[in-house]
Amino acid sequence: MSEQKTIRLVVTRQDGPNENPYKEEFVVPYRKNMNVISAFMEIQRNPVNAEGKKTTPINWESNCLEEVCGACSMIINGRPRQSCTALIDNLEQPIRIEPMNTFPVLRDLIIDRGRMFDALKKVKAWIPIDGSHDLGPGPRQSEEEQQWRYELSKCMTCGVCMEACPNVSGKSSFVGPFAVGQVALMNSHPTGVMRAQERMEALISDGGLQECGNSQNCVRACPKGIPLTKAIGTMNRAATKHMFKKWLNF
């Protein structure tokens, strides 16, 4: 048998939330159709680094393995993305893997995306209903509206747009591109529109929509291809109308 083909990974690790990050290199036997996560599983089975020293297995998060849950986001060869769809065959080696450190790093590649949940709560990205009784059929939606809303609804809170955005950082309180998309989604819903003003008020509060600097990285980075910049433009227009209406009606 010929020599076993291997892959090299350089992983930025961190032992705890307040520890310093360090790099560790691994050599993993190659199999066909591997992704970054199956490489991690290989390391889990045999936690030995490239120097042959025994080490701790890498900590990471993943669930669905089909790019719909958003849990396995990390920076792979410089780009924030889902590790489940990061196929080894398509990556330049050694594969550099880092946590998305725009968020607090808990351990190795596990990050706390709680900031995103807070952002959704802040902009009221839901549609309240009155009770559990039968409300009858909802209002009808046009095909065009459905298409637009379907695109926006694909958001899986993965945090890739947050990592890509130069205006989301520890220095700013920007809710992030995804949150703007979710307000666009809820405010274009025929029932959701009843609370559109409330969401708009929240969206233009400190750390809101206005923090966007139009680098348009979000739309480039989004693994779901959500038209985030169009959502931002739409909400900018709505915010302009909202602002003038509020002033002139006062």
Binding site: I75, G78, R79, P80, T102, A164, P166, N167, S169, K171, S172, G213, N214, S215, Q216, N217, R220, A221
Partner: peptide
């Protein structure tokens, strides 16, 4: 104040619009 709040990331996103963002 706005300029110094940004965390520029051209090394990751060398896209045209990101260049414009930094150049601005």
């Amino acid at each position: 104040y706005i300029a110094f709040q940004a965390k520029n990331n051209l090394e990751r996103f060398g896209t045209f619009r990101n260049w414009m963002f930094v150049l601005q």
